[in-house]
Nucleic acid binder design. Structure first.
Lengths: 129, 129
DNA sequence: GACTTATTGATAATGGATTATTATTATCAG
DNA sequence: CTGATAATAATAATCCATTATCAATAAGTC
């Protein structure tokens, strides 16, 4: 991470612009226009470097490979559409989860993922995938 | 799924006995004593058949490959210990999540995963992994 | 502009999970 | 008990995400 390259700028910009966590493949697509010829290896390398530098955080959704989003965002959760598979960031939090924690366990973090249909897919018709 | 074999009985029994979702590897270990020589391929085949038959449900935890648990359990969530990596089933539910759903989206399902230390690991000492 | 070398792109290699193959075994109807 | 065949064990093959390799390129310093 000693040089400020076109590719890195494009990748960081893509992540910030997205407003939702992106997987490596999605990052490649989103950053490609700003970095012609961008290769998937560079995406992986850069994501790893950014992760190591604490500039992005990993987001894990069902069996999918990890997605990433810029670090420093407010606490939030996700909504995944079963039609288009997009993962949306949602504001808010269920609130106090301590009541769910078994006796003797220590709660440090939590994750909430909602599943359903996004607004766009809902309009296209509620047909099951 | 036309025959009732020793292997299938062992796998189903292991899943029911576990009380927590098991991955293929864990199923193999748990069922092996009751089905000597059980192969991993049989575990995969059987899990797929059981899943297709609706007798088990998949459970997804962070980047891990899917785990399975018997179908028909009450709605519940999970607690994953960052020390021992075990996934525990927990009773209860945060309650009404509708307020989190963006306008126009349709909520169909949700998932809550708590992270922290289980009782056993907590006693062993709170040292970070 | 020239030079040093970090970074990149293309692609081969790797690793791990899952699936296919196939000879063998075991279930169960008759 | 016997035969037809579903199911299994072992292992090779496949998939796919990620990483390593390496010659070519470009960032940044002088």
């Amino acid at each position: 991470m000693k040089r400020d390259t076109q590719q890195r700028r494009a990748i960081v910009a893509a992540l910030e612009r997205a407003g939702r966590p992106l997987g490596p493949r999605e990052v490649l697509q989103a950053a490609a226009p700003a970095a012609p010829g961008l290769g998937i290896a560079t995406v992986y390398r850069t994501l790893k470097a950014l992760l190591h530098a604490g500039r992005i955080n990993p987001v894990h959704i069902r069996g999918q490979s990890p997605r990433y989003e810029p670090a420093g965002k407010r606490h939030h959760h996700y909504f995944r559409c079963r039609r288009c598979d997009h993962v949306f960031e949602i504001a808010g939090c269920p609130g106090n989860l301590e009541p769910l924690v078994p006796r003797g366990f220590v709660l440090e973090d939590h994750e909430v993922v909602l599943y359903g249909l996004c607004a766009a897919c809902r309009k296209k018709g509620p047909s099951t995938r």
